[in-house]
């Protein structure tokens, strides 16, 4: 039972936590403000910036300058595509491991996890060469494949922990009630595991959207998603504060929303079920 806390103490904690929250969030807030300023205003002092005129011109300029929409669609295609493909492979695997555990199930799970521990740079060269020789370099298909593979262990793991929470007796009850394997999956398991699957999808989309090692190394222009596109602003001649801010806001806004929705499940996914 929680006890009543004095109003004063609550006010102090709220103020302290509010400061912490504000400071952590400030960089994001700041680029949101800069993105609504003209290029000339954006490099002035902070107070002058706040009092200057608001404008949406940077958002338009970003699109004109570099076909921003193309990179945005690339990001969407790569993260959603890889997640969708991955779920097709991960759902049956996680189902089987959760409900028909064998002697080696645990080993298989641990081994899958260990592939996630492989530092990407360790396989950078072979993958680069394979992609070069098969024409996958700078294609969405190639990145969809890579993203699916690097996130597959997380998908299997998360789904496994969710499926594990469906009581085995309920599935047995369905079997006793005459449900075939297909009907059991369709009428009982899927509806019960739907929330878990949804949060798995969300988390994996977030991870794929933000992935910045393979996207930077395996794309150039054609298939470059937002991570790689934003990186092009690092060259000094491309440096425009307002435009960089506008591009950044569009790049992070959708994922910020997804992240806030799935924050609870995030912990489980990122710790492979070690913390719930």
């Amino acid at each position: 039972m929680a006890r009543e806390v004095s109003k004063r103490r609550k006010a102090i904690t709220t103020a302290a936590a509010g400061c912490v929250g504000f400071l952590m969030f400030f960089p994001i807030l700041w680029i949101a403000i800069l993105s609504l300023k003209s290029e000339g205003d954006a490099i002035r002092g902070p107070l002058e910036i706040l009092s200057s005129n608001w404008t949406l011109e940077s958002y338009g300029a970003v699109q004109e300058r570099s076909n921003y929409l193309k990179h945005f669609t690339n990001s969407v295609a790569i993260s959603f595509g890889s997640t969708f493909l991955g779920m097709l492979v991960a759902i049956p695997a996680a189902w089987a491991m959760a409900f028909v555990p064998g002697r080696r199930t645990k080993d298989v799970l641990m081994w899958m996890l260990s592939t996630k521990m492989l530092p990407p740079v360790g396989v950078l060269i072979p993958l680069y060469l394979i992609f070069r020789d098969t024409g996958l370099l700078d294609t969405r298909t190639g990145l969809v494949l890579v993203m699916m593979l690097i996130n597959l262990p997380i998908m299997v793991w998360m789904l496994y922990t969710y499926f594990k929470e469906v009581p085995g007796e309920i599935l047995e009850a369905a079997r006793m009630d005459g449900a075939t394997l297909r009907k059991e999956l369709f009428y009982v398991l899927t509806p019960m595991a739907l929330p878990g699957m949804a949060s798995t999808v969300l988390l994996v989309i977030i991870l794929a959207w933000n992935e910045a090692f393979w996207t930077l190394n395996l794309t150039a222009v054609k298939a470059a998603p937002l991570t790689a596109f934003i990186a092009s602003y690092s060259s000094p001649e491309g440096l425009f504060y307002a435009k960089l801010s506008a591009a950044s806001i569009v790049a992070i806004a959708p994922i910020l929303l997804l992240g806030w929705i799935s924050q609870k499940q995030l912990v489980r996914g990122l710790t492979f079920g070690a913390v719930k």
């Binding site: 952590m24 994001i28 790689a228």
Partner: peptide, 15 residues
């Protein structure tokens, strides 16, 4: 407040 604190985690590294 919690939402504000965890927000940076969702910002892509390049940004």
């Amino acid at each position: 407040i919690r939402v504000l604190v965890i927000a940076p985690f969702f910002v892509m590294p390049t940004v």
